[in-house]
Amino acid sequence: MSNLFLFIFIFAIIVTGIVKKVNCYESFIQGVKDGMKNVVNMFSFVLAFVIAINLLNSSHLLEYISSKLNFKYCDLLIQAIVRPFSSSSSLSIMLKNYEKYGVDSKISLLSTFIHTVSDSTFYMISFYFGCIGIKNTGKALVCGLVTNIIGIVLSFLVVMIFF
């Protein structure tokens, strides 16, 4: 379904460009140039981010914590902690939960919600503000993290009520 949307989206944009007599070719080239600049700007910030996440993953710290904490929802706790840092780590915990508890279990549903209802704050801050060159990110981190926490709390409430 999303592929269809994407197709319609791109098609509609180009058709409107033709109707409005825009030089689509020139516009596209100009946009790509801007995009290239942005992506090159991002590199250093994303690299710093990837190093930190790689190290965290390879230190097996989180696995250690979850093996020590032996209660029902400890996998979800770890996922909730990881979610603001890294989408891919959260996704892999979600898939592990699917296999461990079954895809329709309460834990897997919670895991799905935790993964979906918020995005990784740290990644977004380093990615976007690195890209446009903002050094002092002020309260962005706190506000982003609160969003993550609200999302997780809401997930718990909804899954507990409806399933």
């Binding site: 944009i13 109707v19 946009g31 790509v32 994303v46 690299l47």
Partner: peptide
């Protein structure tokens, strides 16, 4: 890893930047 990530994600960003610029210029 970063280069691979940027090739994957960045490539798409660059492509959509182009498409998006058409949308901006045409007023969509």
């Amino acid at each position: 890893d970063t280069l691979e990530l940027l090739l994957k994600v960045g490539g798409m960003i660059i492509f959509y930047s182009g498409i998006f610029k058409i949308a901006v210029d045409s007023g969509v």
